[in-house]
């Protein structure tokens, strides 16, 4: 049984607390997590998959399997890849309802705004928004069938 969204969030908060607010270790850790993200097939790295509002290039694709949303992503920068890998860790293979009803409190608790600064924070918000939009679209398909 996959742990609940909030259990994963608590896990992330725990891991970051070990870094003791050291900016360099935190960034290295984020980059390391990005490195663990499964590679995204080159064919998905196209304009239409780019998350708008990010300084770096972020490609995000999703699919809907057995009532669960599957996210895949990549970025041209390691830090951004690490950031989206955190979101994927929390939201991957969840039902649209789980995604839409969850509150991402870990972002605030690990001091993300301070780590990534205001420009990247906007990009990070764009990623969250895009993932929620995908969840919403799949929820509509589920309820109303394909158009």
């Amino acid at each position: 049984m996959k742990p609940a969204i909030n259990e994963i969030q608590d896990e992330i908060i725990e891991e970051f607390s070990l870094l003791e607010n050291d900016m360099e270790s935190t960034i290295f850790y984020i980059m390391e997590m990005g490195g663990k993200l499964p590679p995204l097939d080159e064919k998905y790295k196209v304009e239409e998959n780019i998350v708008k509002g990010c300084q770096s290039k972020v490609w995000l694709v999703s699919s809907f399997e057995d009532g669960k949303v599957i996210f895949k992503a990549d970025s041209n920068t390691d830090i951004t890849k690490g950031l989206i890998s955190l979101l994927i860790r929390v939201w991957n293979e969840r039902t649209p309802e789980e995604i839409l009803h969850s509150e991402l409190y870990f972002v605030e608790r690990i001091g993300m705004r301070k780590v990534i600064g205001s420009q990247r924070s906007n990009g990070f918000s764009s990623m969250i928004k895009q993932m929620k939009l995908y969840a919403l679209a799949f929820q509509n398909i589920q309820h109303h069938g394909r158009e």
Binding site: I27, N76, I79, I116
Partner: peptide, 14 residues
């Protein structure tokens, strides 16, 4: 091996 934005952020961390 490191994107310029990442390099900038890592230097800022120091």
């Amino acid at each position: 091996k490191t994107h310029l934005f990442d390099t900038g952020m890592l230097l800022d961390a120091r």
